[in-house]
Amino acid sequence: MSKILLIDDDQDLIEMNKSVLTQRGHEVQVAFSAAEATEVAKAGPIDLAIVDVMMEDKTVGFELARRLHEMSPEMPMIMLTGIRKEMQLGYTFEPDETWLPVSKFLEKPVNPRVLADEAEALLTRKSQTAKG
């Protein structure tokens, strides 16, 4: 069982992803904003975070990912983005470790089952790296 932090401003996306992850035996904590997410991360160690890019602000997810990474550099993160094509934000969205500490980008909409699979794959890789 892992502790997963789910960050999204959409009530329904939180609800559906939480339900699938919980069924698979994970402990899920939720945050609806960057501020809430920071509070949760401060309160105790998290194994993996799932971060939505566009919440109260267009790019708040990017800033949040950096902050979370500073707080726990070993924690893998999945970033959900729905703005790849429509917005020119001056960011590259490719997984590039040099600019954003994100392990995986997934373009919305993401099937909750696929998201859970991706999360578990990252958690497995993390535990193997730790053992290795």
Partner: peptide, 13 residues
């Protein structure tokens, strides 16, 4: 897109 993503997710479930 936000509501479509929500509806799509639920339908997949």
């Amino acid at each position: 897109k936000a509501p479509i993503a929500a509806i799509e997710g639920y339908l997949q479930m």
